[in-house]
């Protein structure tokens, strides 16, 4: 046994961090918790409301609708970005001068600020002056994302795929290049088909990075705000109003702080819960 001397001085050194975290995270979060259980009519007068706002949010059709839109959006982009990202990573060269060219090309979309992506796609897709919108209409496809809900959806999904598939590609590529050559050589000796190599070697070896990729894409897309806000502003109607756009409308548009506070917390717990369940499932078989 080693006898450790007790020295409480260490707490002193942690104080700056506690103060900093409290200032930028704990206190703002507690403010939201505060709002979520109270009501105010201005003049800094608050009334205790208990769980009223939570009940109201959970039973409101508006929340249900934006939640379903959010799920549909996140599900769609995950279904496109993950397989597409893996496919692109598999097609990328593993050696030679083209590696850096490909990596830089892949990284470019990730470097563009989100509101710029929104603005780019807005202009790109405009039916009268945008390259994409104009071209589609010119070949006879009736496309107008400012009026048609389906066009708006497709455009939003395409924008997200354009912006974020690269992240999946880079993570999957990192997983792929870390597989030792011996695995491919053993597979050749064992007479494995290309499909077996993918299914038995490449995919299992990419599992960890893909778990991270799916988690990151889930959280980011579930919280998405800027790009659809700049592209469609949540329209036409409410068809692309996702959770965070709705939340901002309630909090800053209607200044309904109690309702918005309760919604924020529910939103936060959904992200946390889904991420936790997903991570636990993926890591179930790891030793």
């Amino acid at each position: 046994m080693i006898n450790k001397t007790t020295n409480q001085k260490a707490w002193l050194f942690v104080i700056p961090v506690i103060v900093l975290v409290a200032f930028n995270a704990l206190i703002p979060l507690m403010t939201v918790v505060n709002y979520s259980v109270q009501d105010t009519f201005g003049n800094n007068l608050f009334f205790w409301e208990g769980t009223k706002w939570f009940e109201e949010v959970l039973s409101s059709p508006r929340f249900h609708q934006s939640f379903m839109r959010q799920m549909a959006f996140t599900g769609t982009i995950l279904l496109i970005e993950i397989p597409l990202g893996i496919a692109v990573a598999l097609a990328m060269p593993r050696k030679g001068p083209w590696v850096s060219v490909c990596l830089i090309l892949m990284a470019l979309p990730l470097l563009i600020p989100w509101n710029v992506v929104g603005a780019m796609w807005n202009i790109f897709a405009l039916p009268d002056i945008g390259l994409l919108g104009y071209s589609l209409n010119a070949i006879g496809i009736d496309y107008n994302f400012t009026q048609g809900p389906i066009a708006a959806w497709i455009t939003t999904v395409m924008m997200d795929v354009w912006h974020w598939t690269s992240l999946v590609v880079l993570l999957a590529y990192a997983g792929l290049v870390s597989i030792p050559d011996a695995y491919y050589q053993a597979a050749k000796i064992d007479g494995a088909s290309n499909w077996a190599v993918f299914w038995r070697i490449q995919l299992p070896k990419m599992k960890r990075v893909l778990t991270i990729a799916i988690l990151l894409r889930f959280m980011d897309s579930f919280n998405i705000y800027t790009e659809p806000f700049v592209l469609t502003g949540g329209g036409p109607g409410n068809t692309t109003t996702f959770l965070s756009i709705d939340l901002v409308k309630i909090a800053l548009g209607q200044f309904d702080l109690g309702h918005a506070g309760a919604m924020s917390l529910i939103y936060f717990f959904i992200v946390l819960l889904v991420s936790w369940v997903f991570y636990t499932l993926m890591m179930r078989n790891e030793t």
Binding site: A182, Q185, A186, I189, G191, A192, R200, I201, P204, K205
Partner: peptide
Amino acid sequence: AQVFQFPVVYDTMTVFDNLAFPLRN
């Protein structure tokens, strides 16, 4: 057949399936 410096096994398969793999292919 070749045995490599670092063990190469197909992680997701059982030992039985690993041994059966070259025959199944």
